[in-house]
Structure formats: structure tokens, C-alpha cells
């Protein structure tokens, strides 16, 4: 089970080309996940094909922006909006940007601070 489920750290420059390659090879977007770490974020993009799951791990500082993958995978819009709204991750050029109005919660970016 484990060999089908990998987490691969990747730098920001190599990230988009890798996503394009996944799309060419007909991988399915499985999930997007943001984790708040000291002074930044850890983003995980999982892609699945048959029973394989490959997760790309991009690390960001607080100020860094991440390009949206909605150009390749339009279905990512919900989860990218969620990352932006709940964590405050700066995602660039989302197709179908809700501008922080997806969940319309009372508190701003609740996951940014602990506790």
C-alpha cells in the first residue's frame, strides 16, 4: 500500500510543469491541502491514477504567492478558494475566484493562527 502513496517535495519553479505533465498523462486531481507551519505554509497537491497517489509538496513563506492550477485542472477552484479563505494562502489567478466569499465566515483566516 505504501509504495503507491508518495509525498514528493518540489520547488516552486518545477511545480507547474509537473502539474502539466500530470494532466498530459491523464492523472486525476485527488486533493489539495494546506498546512500552517512556522512562518509559512506547506501545500500538498495529490494526484491519482488507477491506484497510485502522488502528492507534490510545495513550501511557501508568508509573503510568497502560489500560482493557481485551475488553468490545468478547473475542478481545483473549490479547494483553492478554501485554502485562500481559511489559511490566507495567496493563490494567483484562480478561475472562479470567490475573493474570500466561499464560506463567508465571521472570522478571517481562522487557520492562520493556532488555537
Amino acid at each position: 500500500m505504501e509504495q503507491n502513496n508518495t509525498i514528493e517535495p518540489i520547488c516552486k519553479e518545477a511545480f507547474l510543469p509537473q502539474v502539466i505533465q500530470f494532466k498530459m498523462e491523464k492523472w486525476r486531481l485527488a486533493q489539495l491541502c494546506a498546512v500552517r507551519v512556522e512562518g509559512g505554509y506547506e501545500l500538498s497537491y495529490s494526484f491519482a491514477k488507477d491506484y497510485q497517489l502522488r502528492t507534490l509538496r510545495v513550501t511557501l513563506t508568508d509573503e510568497e504567492k502560489v500560482p493557481s492550477i485551475t488553468q490545468m485542472y478547473p475542478c481545483a477552484f473549490l479547494q483553492e478558494n478554501e485554502m485562500a479563505e481559511l489559511f490566507g494562502v495567496q493563490v494567483e489567478n484562480i478561475e472562479g475566484d470567490y475573493h474570500g466569499k466561499l464560506y463567508r465566515i465571521a472570522r478571517e483566516t481562522p487557520f492562520k493562527e493556532k488555537g
Partner: peptide, 16 residues
């Protein structure tokens, strides 16, 4: 635990 994430089936099924 630091982070728990749950990607549910409907999240994936809304775009289609």
C-alpha cells in the same frame, strides 16, 4: 495533532 484534513467525495463531485 497539528493538522487534520478531510477531502470528502462531494467536494470532488461538485465540479463535474
Amino acid at each position: 495533532i497539528d493538522r487534520f484534513r478531510l477531502r470528502t467525495p462531494t467536494t470532488s463531485n461538485i465540479p463535474p
